[in-house]
């Protein structure tokens, strides 16, 4: 154990468009800093080894595991979390489709799924069901069997293309 790993570092983190000046140990995970230091508890921690995808956030617009990232690595980068995507009274297209298609049960994995597809649907507006399944394979869901999540993503994609479904 090296003392420097838990001596606080001074960091400037840009999260959801706001800059935060923080003192956190060098070894502290981005997921823990988001949740504990910034109070952004929508990012969930399911495995802490990068498999389940519940902690997925966007780093410079691209999906990444917050549990495999040190907060200290994020200086100079922009982090986006679920808190920047929709509100209970103003859902994003995908959040609305997840609600309509019953694409969530316990909801613990949902934020990670929303973040994964926030990015994906922007770059791939016309995915097939099998492409959606492929992308979704980075996010474990223990409740739904995925079928309704796939339907929700396809519905959101169609709406984002301007189709009325």
């Amino acid at each position: 154990m090296n003392a420097s790993t838990h001596e606080p570092l001074t960091l400037s983190l840009s999260v959801n468009g706001e800059t935060h000046d923080l003192q956190v140990p060098a070894r502290k995970l981005l997921s823990d800093v988001l949740r504990e230091d910034l109070g952004l508890t929508g990012t969930h921690v399911g495995c802490e080894h990068g498999v389940c995808g519940a902690c997925t956030v966007l780093i410079d617009g691209r999906p990444a595991r917050a549990c495999l990232t040190f907060a200290a690595q994020m200086e100079g980068h922009e982090v986006t979390t679920i808190e920047a995507v929709g509100r209970p009274d103003a859902l994003s297209a995908l959040q609305q489709a997840l609600h309509e298609e019953h694409g969530l049960q316990c909801g613990f994995c949902t934020a990670g799924i929303v973040m994964t597809f926030e990015h994906y649907l922007r770059e791939n507006p016309t995915p097939t069901a099998s492409e959606v399944r492929d992308v979704l394979s980075g996010n474990l869901c223990r409740c739904t069997g995925y079928q309704n999540i796939v339907a929700a993503v396809l519905k959101a994609a169609a709406r984002m293309r301007g189709e009325s479904v």
């Binding site: 949740r35 508890t41 995507v85 509100r87 609600h99 309509e100 969530l104 909801g107 929303v114």
Partner: peptide, 21 residues
């Protein structure tokens, strides 16, 4: 009837154990 709990859960506003400060 769609689920009442969805709106808080899809937006990351659910309150799970670790979210309680």
């Amino acid at each position: 009837l769609p689920r009442k709990e969805d709106r808080r859960l899809v937006t990351g506003r659910g309150r799970y154990l670790d979210d309680l400060a």
